[in-house]
Design a protein around this nucleic acid. Structure first.
Length: 300
DNA sequence: ACAACGCCCTGAGGGC
DNA sequence: TGCCCTCAGGGCGTTG
């Protein structure tokens, strides 16, 4: 479940259904699911067995479950098609079930299902956050994040997110604004859908050179990112099909509220002009030709 | 250091 | 029916 609101929906589900439980056993059904756990599937499973899940953390699209005793966490990235599902342990196996863990105290299990296998699981060390100046970082322990998460910036729903640093970072870049929004080292959690939605709300074209953006435009864009993500979160995220679901397998319905993404040739909800689709970075970009005019000097 | 590309996968859907 | 093409919400490693 790709972007920040969908990952946050999953995090909340894990906090409700998994935090406080003790892991009994872990089974890896497809080694590619733990390819970034370099010590291998057996080590992955052995490290988790017997440990108690303390909470559920998230930064951008990364999710993690800190476990008791030792500063480690089960780290997950859902990639394009990953799901973390909680349910009755004796239900049938899903077609793309990649890993499974049982708990000592309930008839539930946690499953990692991933059709395209771009997602992954690993056990990672918790280390002090590189961005931990102000605000809170999801713990425990407070101010710590998994080591593989160190290189990404805080996401716009975190207190640690620094608007001024984002603006200054954009000024230094020589690229287009959508590419910058998708760059997780500048701002994390934004993917193709919410990039297009936020740019539509802020009336900015995706190829606008970052160094030409004014402070007012950048702050307006950040407000748009927060608003669209907040609205999506309130209705359980965006699902186009059964691939994107919460831990209980339920879909969100923000797809009904999208203004740009996927709306090729449909009227812009602000001005009525048909929404255009353009290919960029081998992906689709949707925008309103009138509200978001192409800049004279576009940077793709 | 930064920017941009190709690739890692599976499956659905359209055209022929 | 089958084949081939395109498309799909992400990120990493490599190249320039």
């Amino acid at each position: 479940m790709p972007e920040l609101p969908e990952v946050e929906v999953v995090r909340r589900g894990l906090d409700t259904w998994v935090a406080g439980r003790t892991i009994e056993s872990v089974t890896v059904l497809h080694p590619r699911a733990v390819r970034r756990h370099l010590a291998g599937p057996a080590d992955f499973a052995a490290r988790l067995a017997g440990r108690t899940v303390l909470a559920a953390g998230r930064r951008g699209k990364y999710l993690w479950l800190p476990v008791a005793e030792g500063s480690e966490a089960l780290l997950a990235h859902l990639g394009m098609s990953g799901q973390l599902l909680v349910g009755e342990a004796d239900r049938p196996a899903e077609k793309h079930l990649r890993a499974r863990m049982t708990f000592t105290d309930a008839g539930l299990d946690l499953r990692f299902v991933d059709q395209r296998t771009f997602g992954h699981l690993m056990v990672a060390d918790l280390v002090p956050d590189a961005f931990g100046r102000v605000g809170t970082v999801p713990g425990p322990p407070a101010g710590h994040v998994p080591e593989p998460v160190l290189h990404i910036a805080p996401d716009p729903l975190e207190e640690a997110f620094d608007q001024e640093a984002f603006y200054q970072g954009l000024r230094r870049r020589r690229t287009g604004i959508k590419r910058a929004l998708l760059d997780q080292s500048l701002i994390s959690g934004v993917g193709n859908i919410y990039a297009d939605e936020a740019l539509w709300r802020a009336r900015l074209h995706w190829a606008r050179p970052t160094e030409t953006l004014t402070r007012t435009e950048v702050m307006g864009l950040l407000l748009a990112v927060r608003e669209v993500m907040g609205a999506a979160l309130a209705v359980g995220g965006t699902s186009f099909d059964a691939l994107y679901v919460n831990v209980n397998g339920e879909s969100g319905y923000f797809d009904r509220s999208l203004d740009a993404y996927g709306r090729r040739d449909e009227p812009c909800s602000r001005c009525g002009t048909p929404i255009r689709r353009e290919v960029f970075m081998n992906r689709s970009s949707y925008s309103c030709p009138r509200c978001q005019p192409r800049p004279r000097r576009a940077r793709v």
